[in-house]
Design a binder for these strands. Sequence first.
DNA 1: GAAGGGTTCTGGATCGATACAGAAGGAGGG
DNA 2: CCCTCCTTCTGTATCGATCCAGAACCCTTC
Lengths: 357, 357
Amino acid sequence: MSPKPTLQTVADAVGVSRSTVSNAYSRPDQLSPELRRRIHDAARQLGYPGPDPTARSLRRGRVGSIGVLFTSALSYAFTDPYAVQFLRGVAETAERYASNLLLVPISEADEEAAVRAVHNASVDGFCVYCVPAWHGALAATRSRGLPVVAAERPAEVTPDAMYVGIDESAAARAVGEHVARLGHRRIAVVSDFLVAERRTGPVALDGPTAIRYDVTRERLRGFLAGLSGAGVGWSDLLLVNASANSRTEGAYAAAYALDRSDPPTAVLAVTDLLALGVLDAVTARGLRPGRDVSVTGFDDIPEAAAAALTTVRQPAVEKGRIAGGLLLDPPDDGSARQVLLPTELVRRASTGPVEGN
Amino acid sequence: MSPKPTLQTVADAVGVSRSTVSNAYSRPDQLSPELRRRIHDAARQLGYPGPDPTARSLRRGRVGSIGVLFTSALSYAFTDPYAVQFLRGVAETAERYASNLLLVPISEADEEAAVRAVHNASVDGFCVYCVPAWHGALAATRSRGLPVVAAERPAEVTPDAMYVGIDESAAARAVGEHVARLGHRRIAVVSDFLVAERRTGPVALDGPTAIRYDVTRERLRGFLAGLSGAGVGWSDLLLVNASANSRTEGAYAAAYALDRSDPPTAVLAVTDLLALGVLDAVTARGLRPGRDVSVTGFDDIPEAAAAALTTVRQPAVEKGRIAGGLLLDPPDDGSARQVLLPTELVRRASTGPVEGN
DNA sequence: GAAGGGTTCTGGATCGATACAGAAGGAGGG
DNA sequence: CCCTCCTTCTGTATCGATCCAGAACCCTTC
């Protein structure tokens, strides 16, 4: 048995041309059933596993997989149910187009390695999820000359860029208004990416503009807009940065707010995962969510309903599906390549009116 | 600007040979710094993104990515923290070898599509996770002639197969013994894959042998072995199948046991995720875990500690790391390709002695 | 000044397939 | 009986890179 059977090996065995064997696999209607059968038989007998995917990709100019870029360690990427839902959406579309997902982990520490990873990825396009705008890997995806779709609306929208996102600040504004209407004035915000440093603890910022990460900035801007009607200004907010988007860090971050001498009556978290952590911290202190402290999240992951968390619902799976669709079958109409999905404020028991303390 | 710059484009622009440009990227020490700079400058100016990954893969004979096969929808795959940890381990090793992960979703419904997906995957090897032994995709991976590593010890061990697993039945046996020693005799088992059908509810089986899925079978065999010393036999066990490995299905499945007229005093779940669901069901009924009902899990995911769940610890991340290592750098020593990792019974508050009812 | 040893660069062969134009052969129509 | 059309198969060019043997050149060294 020769080391690696190729199309040619099979062709020689059957006594036909290489092209014919290729057709037997890729275009079955181009040859007689009888011959096709003989070819497949010979292939089986020779242990030929079918056309080599790499060679086929090179020739065809299509790889059959889309690259998904993640910041932060893979662990966090999959820890957020929101991310998992989004990914599921992408995978659903991918499956329809017979494509696989290539995970490209982008470490924040080693940007050079990240850029290399992007350059080495055999893909038909990139889906960028939660990668800060300034990360070199982002530019690298563009330099590949492949379709790129962002999972959020970028800060500055170029006409040819593809994205599927939501109006972050409008959605967050609804949260702010809701909380303000309930009478809350002493308010803390728990968020990751407030500062470049990966540290959990309170931070001071001059304003939302100081936040580099787009999504975070827009959500805080929205919170502020919603609260300002009630006279709550930026300097009134207690900002606590979380070193990661995880439940435990959410709880740690909440501690900085809850354990003060003048604790806030409401804590706005920038994701549900963080909010769940905040709830943990609240209950761990014997406080009642929605009565002693109001808590809000963002995303409406499945767990949010169970925890009675007031949050912003955004269609995560749908977002993923659309992102996949944009990549694998970009619409001709340029404007259809920029998708904004609707959001909805979901009021649950984790928020309530300020107690008359 | 020509449509797609290649190595040749750059070579022509600089006035050197194609090989030299290639070296500028892949073997920088093979040419003078001066020339290398000129080449990179020209490349940048022409918008050449570097060597095409697909073409490079074809020539090099190495793709730089490893395929991870999943059964069930992607959603479930990522929902189990155990799976995420395992994946993280694989990703860690992959990163060390400059490889990416290619997710190959294997639907159980459409086996033909699954086999096609395996044949089309450009990878250097396959990591098979939680795929039933009889699934055609498994055979497909082998036919590719690439290294394949299973994340569990297969039922029948062939000498050349690679795997990293645990002694499932021995680990489960420790659970059985622990529960028996606490005096439990009325015992329910909550598990997925007890039967081929995807349905949550009680099932009757002649014995462990009737279970087709290896891991499940071995764990149940272990439970039984641990319990048999106390006189508990197969027919004494109440088996409840879960339609999926998820927390909610765990809770639904538990209901079938807890709501009987003669409820079990102990519920053994085959994964922590299911066990968490069982605990949900227990507390939802106002019962106290470890007092009114003992509950055990399997895997020791992070949440297990928080829930005080008695379970079997297995090193998930380490398992992933080793799996990756076997794929990307297979040891010459054949016996080193079959790895069994240690497990440990972790006793927590979710199990306790039978109440003197 | 010829031999030996580096360094730097070149050219052709090659990886394993697919695309496409065209050849061979048989069927049907006028 | 010739011409056209269709089906079935072939051959060559090509996808975009890397490998490797060797050419060209400069430096030592005896």
